[in-house]
Each structure stands twice: as C-alpha cells, then as structure tokens.
Design a protein around this nucleic acid. Structure first.
Lengths: 273, 273
DNA sequence: CGGACTGTTGACAAACTTCAATCCGAGTGG
DNA sequence: CCACTCGGATTGAAGTTTGTCAACAGTCCG
C-alpha cells in the first residue's frame, strides 16, 4: 500500500523535477550503455534488437520493489546505493545487503515469481531495468548481455557469502572492521578513494546488517578509533591504518573446531579408499 | 592438492566399486534427466545437442570443489547433501549453506574464475556437472535448460537470504528453531516427511552455519526439547509441535529500531514531494 | 582396547543487549 | 525567525546470554 502511494508520488512529481521517474526506452543506446556499465564490449552493430531497457530514477528513500510483490523485472544499479531487506511480522527490519553501481537487484525473485526481499534507495539513484518478459530474448540475441548477466548474478552470490562471513563468525568490532574493509574494497572498485568515504547507511542499518545492536556499532567504532585504525564522524569515515584494520578483521572464533574437522574429513576420505 | 589426490583416489577405486567417480557422457539422455530433475519439460527431440553433461558421484567427505581453485563447471545436486564453506587463515571453518537435491553449486565462481567457497559431500552424493565451456552453448540451444538455470540461480540467491535471516537477528534457540523449520520445509519440498528427518550435518557444522558455539547448539536443542517442541536424539529429529516451533522462530530483536525506520522512510518520501 | 570424534552438560568470565540519558542536526510550525 | 520536535548517534550502567574451558558418555574403527 505504502509503496503504491510512494511510486505514484514519485511519478506525480516527475513533471516538476529534473528526475523523471521512468524514462521511455530509446533502443540500442540504452543497451550499449548498460553493457558498458557492466564491462562488456559494445554489441556488434547488428545486435540492435530494440529490446526495451528502461532507465528508472529514484529519490532517497524510494522503493525499487517491495517484499511479496510479484516479480516483473531485474535491475542493474547505474548510480547510487540501495539496501535490500526483509521485514519480520513484528516490524523488525533485517538488512540483507547494500548494492552499489554495477550490481544486480531483483534476480532472487525469479524462482517463485515473488520478491523475497525489498529494495530501497539510500540516496538518489538510478537503475537500468530489464523486464523478465524480455530477459530470455535479450540474453539469447546478445551474448555480451548474457555474459554480463551471468557475471552479475555470480557476483551477487559471491557477495551473499561475504554477508555470512561478516555476520557469523566474530565479535562486534571484528564485524565492523570487516564491514569497513568491504566498503573500502567496493569504493576502490568504483574508482573512488578506499581510505576516505561517506557511508550511505545509518548505524541502525549497519547494525541490522551485521546482526548486532546499533549501540554496539557505535561502541565498536569507538574501539576501532581508540586503536588508531579509523576516524569516523557520523557517516564520514577515514581509514587511518588499513593494515591494522586487516589485522583486526582476521579475528575469528576459537579455531580448534576446525582443525579437527579437517582431520576428520581426511579420515573419511582415507577411509573411503 | 588434497583434492587432486582425493579425486584420483576416487577414480582409482572406480573399478572396485559400484560408484564410478566420473561417468562418461551419454548424449541427450543425461540432459533429459537433468531437466526432469529441475522440473522442466523434456526438450523437443530436435534439441539433442550431444553436449556433455557429466554425472559425478562422490562419497561422504569428498570434495566437489575447493576454495581458491579455478572454476571449470557448475553442478546440479542429483542426490545427497553438500555443505559449502570457507576456511579462514587460522583454520576456522565457516559453513555458508547446505545444498540438497535440485540445488545448484559452483555458480558463484563465474564472476572471477575462482571458487570463493569449497563444497563437500556430507553423505554419498551425485551431481550433474556442466562445464563452463559448454554453458552458453547449451543455454542458447535449449531454452528449457536456460529456464532451469535461471531458476536454480535465483533459488541460490533466495536461500542466501535465508542464511542471513537465521544468523543475524536472534537468540541461539530462535536460530535453531528457524534452522529446523528451514530443514523441515526442504524435506517437504523433496517429498519426505517434514516432521521427522535425519540431519546430515554435525553439531559443529550447524553451529558454524548459525554463527554460534556448538555447545550452544546442544543447549538450544535442550531448550526446544524442554519446551516440548522437538525431540532430538543426535541427528534424528522429530518436530512434535510445529506451531510452537513457528512461534519461537518469530522471535527477533527489540523491534523499536524498525518502526522508527519506517517512519523515517516515509518522512523522506514526503519530504521529497 | 585405544584413539578420535560426536554430543552433552556444568561453571565462569566476557561480550552483548537492553534501558536510559544526553547531544546534535535538520525540518516543522508558531 | 526561533523554539520545538524528531530521529541519529554516542555513552553509561545493569542484567543476561553466550563463548570458552573442561569433563564425560557414547560410537565407530583399526
């Protein structure tokens, strides 16, 4: 309900703002731009299929799609930042990830036709949207698009692993260190400074993402600061000692669990011979 | 290294066992079986492309692929159970997920050509293997395969969300409750009893997956037992009161975090008008 | 039977969540 | 225009959960 209102609102103000909510498709150039974004060569000129690729722009706080709604498209982030999240029955919001330029959103809805998550813009953002209806056609007629899609999906899976990496194994300050290093790497990949950046998400969102209380996030920032590793003022972050931060990020749980596990695995393999 | 040894060993004993490690491709029938497994219609007879789809069989404890090795194929689980995991420098093993029949493994390696995770069989298992070299060709020539692939990838993404759901938000006994319900649903989806099943993984693996100590897993089993919700003897589990288990699984953190967040989002949207 | 592993339980210390108070910045309304 | 409110962020104190260390029962296998 809220989203309907919201989307309408965005659409309504389209005439009054330099950010129209939905740009009508302009064949080929759009595809070219998308492939360029995703690091693929331009399609051979013959590939001008005229398939509709939409450019959609959202304001900070705008929803790209909502949990539970039917899946109609996938989206490649062109600019800005999104968070994906699920909302529990009691209203608790679990942040599942943050997505920046070149990342893919909405693909997890294909398997059952409904979005298992919501996605919201954390700042003014824009995405290339490909309708599911056209997906197979484009993929088949433009190999470069298919490659880009496969890589984007694969990246999504890989970064899902990183989420687990951060949440599952460690103390709060180590989680925060890993999070900051993760952000740092992403910034570098986007050609921005990996040592000085502005977080686009609130402490609460970070806390939900890392699986800790937001007060603990603040305290962990304090710990990293007192160790001389980072300087943070609200959302402005500077990494002072990245080596030290890496050192902290290596902390895990007690590791005796595992060595036995490895031994066990070897045992099983040997036993199998 | 170990895996090379291992695979060779498996291959060596192929002549002495009913479980050959690598079955030579037998065109078309293999593809048909794979598509049937993935819930797609048989391809039109014309689609007999003769693309190699391998059937690979592994013993309990065998590695399907190892973290850091170059990616050469993707795998559809035909039978058995796998765990995927990453090993930290200090040897701590973070379990990222468990995969059963119809699930896809190895796709997260496509983006950079190296496996970010390892996969190991928890019991005797078998997979259909499609070489990356052939992937685009098959996908383009067999639409049903492409659909199946997209759905499988999408499912992987969706279940990655569930991991986050379990690990990030809750007390240990709630995590365990969610885990058991998750297993229960998967069992149901595979046509087995959702109320009585055998876990294929150890307490340590569950603990790593849920991000808690293995002793805490034992204690949480004890709590769920004392609440009259489940009866567990080692890896044999019976869900006695699934409603009660669902009730427990709904527990989250204090939820005031979120409601404000929603208000905030609305504010931003309204402000934007 | 010894060795190795799984699973369970107890005790204690450490870390975290929660509740609470405060500061600050931004937008609202008088 | 300024006081006011609301939410973000930080910090303190208290209570609880959980991780860790340790010991032990049960199982499988050589």
């Amino acid at each position: 309900m809220q989203n309907v209102i919201h989307l309408n609102d965005i659409a309504n103000r389209a005439h009054a703002t330099p950010w129209p909510a939905m740009v009508p498709p302009s064949d080929h150039r759009r595809l070219e731009a998308l492939l360029s974004l995703m690091g693929e060569q331009l399609p051979d000129a013959a590939a001008s299929t005229g398939q509709p690729i939409l450019l959609r722009q959202l304001l900070a706080g705008g929803s790209l799609f909502l949990e539970g709604t039917s899946a109609e498209a996938i989206h490649f982030v062109r600019a800005g930042t999104f968070k994906t999240f699920r909302t529990a029955e009691d209203g608790y919001e679990q942040v599942l990830g943050f997505s920046a330029r070149t990342e893919l959103l909405g693909f997890d809805a294909i398997c059952d036709g409904r979005h298992p998550t919501s996605a919201m813009a954390l700042e003014d953002s824009s995405v290339y949207t490909v309708l599911l209806r056209d997906l197979a056609t484009i993929a088949r007629s433009v190999p470069a698009f298919e490659r880009a899609l496969h890589r984007a999906v694969s990246s999504s899976l890989a970064s899902a692993c990183e989420v687990a990496d951060m949440m599952a194994a460690v103390a709060a300050d180590v989680r925060l260190a890993r999070f900051l290093l993760n952000v740092s790497r992403r910034m570098a990949a986007l050609g921005q400074s990996p040592l000085r950046f502005v977080l686009r998400m609130s402490r609460r969102e970070i806390a939900s993402y890392l699986g800790i209380a937001h007060e603990t996030v603040s305290r962990s920032f304090g710990i990293l600061h007192s160790l001389g590793l980072v300087v943070a003022d609200k959302r402005d972050v500077e990494i002072v000692d990245i080596e030290g931060l890496l050192e902290v990020s290596r902390g895990t749980r007690r590791s005796d669990d595992v060595k036995v596990r490895a031994t066990h695995a070897q045992t099983r393999r040997l036993r199998a011979l």
